[in-house]
Amino acid sequence: MTSETYLIREIEQKDNAQIAAVIRDVLIEMGVPKVGTAYEDKALDIMYETYNKKNAMYFVIEHDGKIIGGGGVSQLDNFEGNTCELQKMYFLPKARGKGLGAQMIEKCLTKAKEFGFEQCYLETMPYMKAAKKLYQRNGFDFIDGPMGDTGHYSCNVWMIRKL
């Protein structure tokens, strides 16, 4: 791959350590609490295994042989309804500002539609302004409270989009 090639592909087991490091690095960079957020999720260290199930998919962004970001979709936990969640979408600084976020959202939502989901939910933090703008540009609207039970009680911005 050339230095300007960014590949969005399905996660492989060999990506587990790299994507876990990316997510934790971004969360630390953003000052996200380590409790009540994705930082403490057991799934971070076994992302391939976590998403290797029905109606779930996780994608990584590879650049020069390194994982620099990722994002996925899966059934929204503890929610009655045909709703998925956009999950663990985090990019290192070198992946930002290149249109990769919109590409990742499109890839995830296309897969969610293939799985038959009717809407997609997400949670974020109030100070993640660029992320909130990205989500809004891609059809997500703010809602007044959480849906399901993600375990991320420190995330207090909730958004939804019909598929």
Score class of each variant (00 low, 15 high):
M1N: 15
T2P: 14
T2R: 15
E4F: 14
I8W: 09
E10L: 14
K14T: 06
K14I: 04
D15Y: 08
I19K: 05
A20D: 02
A20S: 05
A20L: 04
A21L: 11
I23A: 04
D25S: 15
L27D: 07
E29C: 08
E29H: 11
M30C: 08
V35S: 14
G36R: 04
T37N: 00
Y39S: 15
Y39L: 09
E40G: 13
E40K: 04
D41F: 14
A43I: 05
A43C: 05
Y48A: 13
N52I: 07
N52A: 09
K53A: 12
K54A: 13
K54R: 14
M57S: 11
F59P: 00
V60E: 09
E62N: 11
H63Y: 12
G65M: 14
G65P: 10
I68S: 10
I68T: 13
G69Y: 00
G71D: 00
L76A: 02
N78A: 04
N78T: 00
E80A: 09
G81C: 10
N82G: 00
N82F: 03
T83A: 06
C84W: 00
K88L: 03
M89T: 00
Y90K: 01
F91S: 04
F91K: 03
L92Q: 05
K94C: 07
G97I: 12
K98T: 02
G99K: 07
G99M: 03
L100Y: 10
A102M: 05
Q103N: 00
I105R: 04
E106Q: 12
C108L: 01
T110D: 14
A112H: 10
F115I: 06
G116Y: 10
E118M: 10
E118P: 04
E118L: 07
Q119N: 10
E123T: 01
E123Y: 01
E123I: 00
T124M: 00
P126W: 08
P126Y: 06
P126V: 02
P126K: 01
A130K: 09
K133Y: 12
Q136T: 13
G139E: 08
G139V: 13
D141G: 12
F142T: 08
I143H: 02
I143L: 00
M147F: 06
Y153M: 05
C155E: 07
C155S: 07
N156T: 07
N156K: 03
N156F: 02
V157Q: 01
W158D: 00
M159I: 13
M159P: 12
M159R: 08
K162V: 06
K162R: 09
